[in-house]
Amino acid sequence: MRGLVAIFDKELADYLISWRGIILFAVALLVTVVAIYGPAGALVNIREQLGEPTQFGQTQFVFLNLFTTSGEGSYAFLFFITMFIVPIVGIVLGFDAINREKNSGTLSRLLSQPIYRDTVFNGKFLAGIVTMAIMLTSVVLLVAGLGMRSIGVPPSSEEALRLFLFLALTTLYGSFWLGLSMLFSVLFERVATSAMASIAIWIFFLLYTLTGFIPNAVANMRVPLSDTPATQELIRYATVQIAATRVSPIYLFQEAMYVLLAPGTRTATEYLQIYASGAEWQPGPLPLSQTMITIWPHLVTFVAIAAVFFGVSYYRFTREEIRST
């Protein structure tokens, strides 16, 4: 990979030193602090939980509650990260990666150097991932540090491991958005168009996830409910609804991360199975290995979608005519 290091170095410096990078960091930190230290923040809830009796060993994951619990009038950190921060950061880092260089006439010069075209793409992509990793790590460490001071409970080794996995997987999730916006920067000539296209997709899935309007409509169409639906009917309805909701990458990732950070929760499918079996038990926390098995399909789906983005970008970019006008 000739020239990869040179491109990576330059792009990383661009991201970290430019106004774009500084603003992104500032926004991410601000949102984090608001999420944790909001007026009626999560900390109050967690402190209350500390006093409650232990049930199914829940308290052993108290520290992770910092990331999954929401306070009154604010959202949980995990919700913020998956819904807003990571998609926005991914889009902002990638939406003009290729077409800006095309418009400013630097791409012609760049591609007349003895490097492969995909090296340009890979170098930019890697720099974006590293920028996101740095950013997410600092945000998570900040929350962990502030949280530790406030609740006075250090993370157990398993919690630390889960947090590390969370960081790695969130970076993967971010690279999905980065890959999407970079694909648009290859497909569209104008920077404004690629930015709008990426943002449109994000807002679409944001509303798709938040309102649940489309999944409900799909479920109503596939399994029309009678006035007094039988249990079996309801389960079929819910199955379709869950499948439709998972079309949204935001929901898909969020679900996986709740299972990872709140070991007492399950995926929607499993809750449905518990309900269907008629059992009256509350699920206890899962060991890490079982958590990973549970969320494995989610992660594979992400890698697959990202691979498709990459494939299309490569195909278009390596065959394109590079004219400097």
């Binding site: 020239g3 290091v5 040179a6 661009d14 012609s108 400097s324």
Partner: peptide, 23 residues
């Protein structure tokens, strides 16, 4: 190229060094 462009936020020397490193 006809409409040659450089990275505007870099200095002249930095632009040239980038080209050199790519080579």
């Amino acid at each position: 190229p006809e409409k040659v462009g450089f990275y505007e936020d870099l200095t002249a020397a930095q632009n040239l060094v980038y080209t050199a490193r790519l080579n």
